[in-house]
Design a protein around this nucleic acid. Structure first.
Length: 856
RNA sequence: GCCCGAGUGGCGGAAUUGGCAGACGCAGUGGACUCAAAAUCCACCGGUGGCGACAUCGUGCGAGUUCGAGUCUCGCCUCGGGCACCA
């Protein structure tokens, strides 16, 4: 009950629980949030990253969806046709592990969690179009995942390869490169092992350059996310250089391929190349040394490299090991014959797996040369180096050892480099360009670009995922499951508790070859769950299509997603894969957009009161229900949006939540009081306004302008503070003006304004007031966003700041629209104290803001 | 090592294009109401000096540009993030 003096009886108490339960039901009955594609309105596709159903929603979800929901609701009020769907990323290991542990079915666990999460979403008031709900573990969804897989396969973007891969011993499956962080599994943090296995890959590298280039088409993405993707793609410009293999005497060797190619970004340093390195996994390495005196030493290095863990490698402080192979190569520029070694710091799957070592300019090569006593020829020096004067002219002088402690990695001038001596060296330098040009002319090298990005390993040796639609036939090889036989249905009755796997499920794997009809074995690996989440946003545009994953028209209408909201942890994984899927599907003609997500908002984390991340194991999780029960979902939503800007982490603060609830109640009372004094039929006429009316009216235009802009900027914290100011102004008005003297049209207007602008944040509160206090029909959800006109907010007089020599000295009032001369005169009279004995030589006037007097 | 961010009261944070630093809120202090408390309402609320008007300092540190710098430039410091034996 409000205790203001004038309307005590007419204002009902704010009872969140009753109100919210009432509206949850009403919205559900009406199916209020279902979107009909309306071509007359501009479209807006607002999407939050769909959840993995690991249990009930947590605070991170609540924040993610509250941000999206406020955006979607406000866009709806501003006249957009808004698509705002939800679904579940329902395949994945946690379901399978839970099923194993409790001896149940992964499906049952997943469906139970999805139901619970859906109930919480409704309780939170999220305006999802539930007709478009997508669950990735449902056959009518994963069928199309298989279909897309086969289309990629047809197009040559799917292949199998035997290769050393990342294996997580705890998850008992392989992992993509993107799923390994500092040598550890992204999911369980176990140390990842290398295993040589044949696996399925998607050729994302075919799109490396476009994925990099098109980051520039994404001004609505956070810079750091684009940076992370660019780093991950890791483009390096350089050259491929061919070296000729030979023996100690310089003669070609029978059976050798004759040449080995390396990639280098520093062709300018070719004259400093004093040895040559192969990765331990280099193909043909063991054959090269077989039966020679070098075999044992090389084998030791190769075997030793297998035991270097990715975690150790990531620390970058490993001691280097190597062995001479007995072979030599001829450097195509210097003509030098240099020894070929195997070295465990050379990475087999970058470039060609072979490296020309330049110890004088590369710290790693330098350390290796020191350890194995290989020559270090200085070929690039800064001009203050003691050796520089000795070497800069005398092209014949040959220095093959130095007493340095580390390599010279600075840029400098080339020395001891034949005709290139004297040129500037370095990446993309004059010297590099000259040498590459000559290599190209001689046919022993060419410009080349390498990427750090690897193809996406998508097969998983796990049950709860989308089956790879392939059949292994003894006669026909590996063939796709014919389209009319899709989906390959995942059996839901495995005895996971007893350790049964798909590979042991005879009913599943026994099949016949679709080509020759012979008995054949179905592929029993499933796809990485990230394949499921790489196109779900497309399925939402046409979720019930039974002919295609989505129609081109529907996708072209709704795509791209205008606002995508989710956690930074997907900066590389999900966002890179989705960008790739969109481009590949575009190239196959299924839609016409280049990029799936126009604007990306990465919301910050919700931490506990002490700034620690919330986790079950720490026991510091604050469940959403702990706020919804005592205060209601509106308070929860308001608190989440008000405490901090959306992209920042914040520490959970119960006091701030109580404060949010206090504001909701205060605003509730103010709206009621205004509504009771308001009259929906009164005509707004500013000519009869009192000073107090005018003040509130102006404040109303000002604060709604700010609130609107802040919604556009997605700064919900300041949008809410603008609403608070409007509420404060209304409160001041109600306190200052007696009940009978309030302007009925103005009271009605401001009451409607407050309800409307706060409704996207507090929708239950909004609809209750919309009906009960304002007696409107329909829902505030479909009401128009308040109009504003800043020219209505202009005062007759403005207060300006007066500075003398840039120091704040005084304030004064001038008429709105005062000329610079008038402003200066007003400023001089009020600042006379600081002007004594001085002359004003200049006055800088910022209209309506300040005057700065420059004096001598 | 390379590449990005960020640093503002006791706290969360404002300051949108170089123009009055600290909006809005939390916490706190004082007051009204109350037998009292809670709730609510009103006022105050960066440091130092002063009864006070006011003065002075103040946006991580140091320079610079400018009539004027939280905002721009240069050089540092601290924290956070990404990549990394990638040739």
């Amino acid at each position: 009950m409000c205790d203001c003096t004038d309307h005590k009886e007419e204002i009902p108490a704010y009872d969140a629980k009753t109100i919210e339960e009432k509206w949850v039901k009403a919205w559900d009955d009406e199916n209020l949030f279902a979107v009909d594609t309306d071509p007359a309105k501009p479209k807006k596709y607002v999407l939050e990253m769909f959840p993995y159903p690991s249990g009930d929603l947590h605070m991170g979800h609540a924040r993610n969806y509250t941000i999206g929901d406020a955006m979607a609701r406000q866009a709806r009020m501003r006249g957009f046709d808004v698509l705002h769907p939800i679904g579940f990323d329902a395949f994945g290991l946690p379901a399978e592990n839970a099923a194993i542990k409790h001896n149940t079915q992964a499906a049952a666990w997943t469906y139970k969690n999805m139901d619970q999460a859906l109930a919480t979403m409704k309780r939170m008031g999220f305006s999802y179009d539930m007709d478009r709900l997508v669950k990735t573990c449902s056959p009518d969804y994963y069928r199309w995942g298989q279909w897309i897989f086969e289309k990629l396969w047809e197009r040559g973007l799917v292949y199998r390869k035997k290769n050393p891969v990342n294996w997580c011993p705890k998850c008992e499956t392989v992992l993509a490169n993107e799923q390994v962080t500092e040598g550890r599994c992204w999911r369980c943090d176990s140390e990842v092992e290398k295993r040589d296995l044949e696996q399925w890959y998607i050729k994302i590298t075919a799109y490396a350059q476009e994925l990099l280039d098109d980051l520039e088409k994404l001004p609505g993405w956070p810079e750091r996310v684009k940076q992370m993707q660019a780093n991950w793609i890791g483009r390096s410009e350089g050259a491929e250089v061919d070296f000729t293999l030979c023996d100690a005497e310089g003669n070609p060797i029978e059976g050798d391929e004759g040449k080995i190619t390396v990639f280098t970004t520093r062709a300018d340093t070719l004259f400093g190349n004093t040895f040559f390195l192969l990765a331990p996994e280099y193909k043909g390495l063991m054959e090269m040394v077989e039966g020679t005196e070098y075999e044992d030493a090389v084998r030791e290095v190769v075997e030793g490299a297998k035991h270097i863990s990715a975690v150790e490698r990531a620390q970058g402080t490993l001691e280097k090991h190597g062995a001479f192979t007995g072979r030599y190569v001829v450097n195509p520029v210097s003509g030098a014959k240099v020894p070929v070694w195997v070295a465990d710091y050379v990475i087999s799957d970058y470039g060609t797996g072979a490296v020309m070592a330049v110890p004088c300019g590369d710290q790693r090569d330098f350390e290796f040369a020191k350890k194995y006593d290989l020559p270090i020829v200085p070929i690039i020096l800064s001009d203050d180096d003691p050796l520089y004067d000795q070497l800069k002219d005398e092209k014949s002088t040959v220095v093959t050892s130095v007493d340095w402690d580390e390599a010279l990695t600075c840029e400098g001038t080339l020395v001891q480099s034949g005709k290139y001596t004297g040129m500037v060296g370095g990446k993309h330098s004059e010297g590099e360009a000259a040498i590459v040009a000559d290599l190209e002319a001689a046919g022993t090298g060419k410009r080349s670009v390498q990427y750090r990005l690897r193809d996406w390993l998508i097969s998983r040796q796990r049950y709860w995922g989308n089956p790879i639609p392939a059949i292994h036939c003894e006669h026909c090889g590996i063939v796709p499951v014919p389209e009319d036989q899709l989906p390959v249905t995942l059996p839901e009755n495995l005895d996971l508790g007893a350790g049964e796997t798909l590979a042991e499920c005879r009913d599943f794997y026994e099949t016949t070859c679709p080509v020759c009809g012979a008995p054949a074995r179905r592929e029993t690996d499933t796809m990485d769950t990230f394949t499921c989440s790489s196109w779900y946003y497309l399925r939402y545009t046409d979720p019930h299509n039974t002919e295609l994953p989505f129609s081109k028209d529907a996708a072209n209408h709704w795509m791209p997603v205008d606002n995508y909201i989710g956690g930074i942890e997907h900066a590389i994984l999900h966002l890179l894969y989705s960008r790739f899927f969109t481009k590949a599907l575009r190239d196959m003609g299924f839609l016409d957009v280049d990029e799936p997500f126009t604007n990306l908002l990465c919301q910050g984390m919700v931490k506990d009161e002490n700034g620690d991340t919330m986790s079950k194991s720490k026991g510091n999780v604050v469940p959403p229900s702990s706020v919804i029960e005592p205060y209601g979902a509106d308070t929860m939503r308001l608190a989440i949006l008000f405490i901090a800007p959306p992209e920042k982490d914040f520490d959970w603060d119960p006091k701030a939540v109580a404060g949010a609830n206090r504001f909701i109640k205060r605003a509730w009372n103010i709206v009621w009081r205004l509504a009771n004094d308001g009259d929906a039929n009164a005509v707004l006429d500013t000519s009869v306004f009192s000073d107090a009316d005018m003040k509130l009216y102006r404040e109303r235009h000002r604060t709604i302008a700010r609130c609107t802009q802040d919604f556009d900027r997605q700064q919900f914290n300041t949008a809410i503070s603008a609403v608070m100011e409007l509420v404060n102004a209304a409160s001041t008005y109600l306190n200052a003006v007696a009940a009978g003297e309030r302007n009925a049209a103005l009271c009605r207007l401001v009451a409607t304004d407050i309800v409307s602008v706060l409704a996207p944040v507090c929708p239950f509160w909004g609809d209750e007031l919309w009906h009960e206090a304002l007696h409107n029909e329909g829902s505030v959800y479909t009401a128009p966003w308040p109009e504003f006109d800043l020219s209505e907010a202009v005062e007759d007089e403005v207060e300006i700041a007066v500075q003398v020599l840039g120091k704040m000295r005084a304030h004064t009032k001038v008429p709105t629209g005062a000329t610079p001369e008038q402003m200066q005169a007003a400023a001089e009279s009020v600042a006379s104290k600081w002007l004594e004995g001085k002359t004003v030589v200049k006055a800088i006037c910022v209209p309506g803001k300040l005057v700065n007097l420059v004096v001598k």
